[in-house]
Amino acid sequence: YKFLSGMHLNDTKNELGVRKDRHESLGRGFLGLAAFENIMNDPNIDEIPLILETIDDSLWAEEIALLRSMQGRRKA
């Protein structure tokens, strides 16, 4: 994390390894919501800017609220 200066957040329409970058709304792709919950609770990225990069701008407010609601929900 030493050299990470920002992250773009989006789910993906494609499976791992297909060498395509097709964005999807959070929780509607192959990553799923658990991946974003892990990101939102990783103390190593607390000070790193997160940029929402999903495909449906009508969902942006909902997705931002969802991400914020995930903070503090650490899995045991």
Rank of each mutant, 00 (worst) to 15 (best):
A35H: 15
L67T: 01
T54K: 10
E24W: 03
N38M: 07
H23R: 09
A35F: 14
N44K: 06
K13L: 06
P49R: 04
I64D: 13
K13E: 08
A35N: 12
L16Y: 15
R68G: 02
A34W: 05
A76Y: 04
V18K: 09
P49F: 13
L9H: 10
K75G: 05
N14C: 13
I55E: 11
D57Q: 10
K75I: 06
L26S: 06
S69F: 05
F3A: 00
N10K: 15
E24A: 03
D56A: 02
S25P: 11
L9E: 14
A34C: 00
L9F: 14
I48P: 07
N38E: 12
R22I: 13
D21K: 11
K20Q: 14
N44R: 06
M40H: 07
N14H: 13
L52A: 01
A61D: 15
N10Q: 15
L59D: 14
R68E: 12
H23F: 01
S69G: 01
G6M: 14
R74Y: 03
R73V: 02
L31M: 15
L9W: 12
K20F: 03
A65G: 08
I45A: 05
D57M: 08
S5F: 07
D42I: 08
S5G: 04
K13Y: 05
D42Y: 00
